[in-house]
């Protein structure tokens, strides 16, 4: 573990302590078991959504903030080109092959779908009575999967069949609070939940093969025999491997069982949240990774790394951010 990674772990533990009960500067929103990777605090925001013109063929980066705003940046230029408001608590994001962006509104218990560069939602998914934490869209089927955290009860994975507002719910096998999910290019779903026991947030992984009818608990081996998964932030798909995002990116293959491949170290100076793997198209594997770094009142940032090289960030956005918690890239060219 590099010294920078060590620093990040310490920072995360400190931040987790603040969230869990120290009553510090960040208001607590979660019930029992909510993790530092859970939904960020609600901060009221006023103002109208706006969006620059001429974004049709541009790759756009959407970033959720704890002040209730979603920032929209030109992906390659890192310039702010729009702001979406009208959220209560935007958290997780995902995008489909057509460039539509889905934003989970945790407290409002809904998921808003925006067209690429659009100012108003084109569809709203009523996710009540659950609290959507993150989402993923299958490029194969168009299905929308929503990771529902749950509050005092267990959460679930809600899958909205393409174009449908009626989800199928998939529960875990324990007191699961789902925080992230991802599809591969075949339509298989990988998900992770966190549950708090004695202040330690153990993570449980699940797999839903494309013809599956129930989530299958999936044991992931770690880089070492004594490895335990705690406080996982997100899972993702890079076009070839599954990723587990927890103070670094751990790569796996899954076919009957999970097989560990390698670890990619992402150096930074904050608490790394969910990441997005940038892929030029669906036939290519990831070439960049983008992640939110929440510094809890210090300098928040969105960092860019080469992928799969990792290492030091190659670019950074620091302006106009306020507790970033989720992000997605909407491709200017439909995939």
């Amino acid at each position: 573990m590099s010294s920078l990674t060590t620093l990040r772990v310490v920072a995360a533990l400190v931040a987790g302590g603040i969230l869990a009960g120290c009553g510090g500067g960040v208001p607590q929103v979660g019930g029992p078991g909510i993790t530092s990777a859970g939904a960020p605090a609600v901060r009221e925001h006023r103002g109208e959504s706006w969006m620059a013109k001429g974004l049709k063929n541009r790759d756009l980066l959407y970033v959720s903030n704890s002040d209730g705003v979603v920032n929209v940046y030109r992906y390659w230029q890192h310039t702010l080109v729009g702001v979406l408001t009208n959220f209560t608590q935007p958290v997780g994001e995902c995008a489909d092959a057509a460039g539509n962006v889905y934003i989970t509104d945790y407290t409002a218990e809904k998921v808003d779908e925006y067209a690429h560069g659009g100012k108003k939602p084109i569809k709203v998914y009523d996710d009540s009575p659950y609290q959507p934490q993150a989402c993923a869209v299958s490029a194969k089927t168009g299905d929308l999967a929503v990771a529902n955290y749950g509050y005092y009860q267990a959460g679930n994975i809600a899958v909205y069949p393409h174009g449908s507002g009626s989800p199928t719910f998939y529960g875990g096998t324990r007191d699961d609070h789902f925080i992230s999910c991802a599809y591969d290019d075949r339509g298989d779903l990988f998900a992770v939940s966190n549950a708090g026991y004695s202040g330690i947030y153990y993570s449980q992984f699940y797999y839903l093969p494309k013809r599956g009818a129930q989530l299958v608990p999936m044991n992931l081996p770690g880089p070492s025999r004594s490895w335990e998964w705690r406080g996982v932030r997100a899972v993702a798909w890079d076009g070839e491997y599954w990723l587990v995002d927890v103070y670094g990116l751990y790569r796996f293959t899954i076919n009957v069982k999970a097989t560990y491949v390698d670890t990619i170290t992402l150096q930074g100076d904050g608490d790394l949240g969910p990441v997005w793997i940038y892929r030029k198209n669906l036939k290519s594997t990831g070439s960049q990774v983008v992640g939110v770094e929440n510094n809890y009142g210090q300098t928040d940032s969105v960092d860019f790394w080469s992928y799969p090289a990792g290492g030091s960030p190659i670019a950074q956005i620091t302006k106009d951010l306020d507790g970033p918690s989720g992000l997605a890239v909407s491709m200017g060219t439909p995939q």
Binding site: Y207, P209, K210, R211, G212, A213, V216, N255, V256
Partner: peptide, 9 residues
């Protein structure tokens, strides 16, 4: 092609 399609438990 040997890819996992489903698990029945």
């Amino acid at each position: 092609r040997g890819h996992l399609e489903n698990e029945l438990v």
